[in-house]
Design a protein around this nucleic acid. Structure first.
Length: 156
DNA sequence: GCCAACGTTGGC
DNA sequence: GCCAACGTTGGC
């Protein structure tokens, strides 16, 4: 099992939207970055755990946990000229972009702010704390995942 | 809204 | 294949 962190802008899609989604499950579409795509297509597996992270908003940080329920498949929105993430250079014969489905697992009673994550002694590798790392899909080491998770859950 | 740090594009 | 220009991300 692997661990991930997915960024989302809560104005577009928040943890509460995931809670309210049918079966609390949502396709994670719209990823248009090759490195992130490679993770979605090749490495994210059913059963992997995913931190949901709110970015570009007032309170930036980890807000909840989800589980992967469907591994990489073609993101059909790339073929739809009406869609926000339409990619005219992609084709059905050679699709460029992939997505996975995730299901809500839990919402933490308090958001774990990025500012706190940056001060945690045992959190040194996650992309969030590294300069200039902007990937919206990033792997999380098991040890760091566990440290972050316990920090989130102990903050009742 | 600013701006630093990336990623992508396209001319050569 | 280089690299300048441009677009995007995302914290602050």
């Amino acid at each position: 099992m692997k661990y991930w962190l997915f960024k989302t802008e809560p104005d577009a899609f928040s943890i509460d939207d995931l809670v309210n989604a049918p079966e609390q499950t949502e396709p994670w579409d719209g990823i248009r970055n090759y490195q992130a795509r490679n993770f979605l297509r090749d490495e994210v597996d059913v059963g992997d755990l995913v931190f949901i992270y709110h970015s570009s908003c007032k309170q930036v940080g980890i807000v909840g946990l989800a589980e992967v329920v469907k591994s990489g498949y073609v993101d059909h929105t790339q073929f739809d000229p009406e869609a926000k993430y339409y990619d005219p250079k992609s084709s059905r014969e050679k699709p460029r972009w992939y997505m996975v489905d995730i299901q809500f697992s839990q919402k933490f009673s308090q958001l774990l702010p990025l500012s706190i994550i940056k001060t945690m002694d045992d959190i040194k590798e996650i992309g969030l704390v590294k300069k200039g790392h902007r990937l919206s899909i990033m792997p999380v080491q098991k040890t760091e995942f566990e440290a972050l998770l316990s920090r989130c859950e102990n903050k009742a």
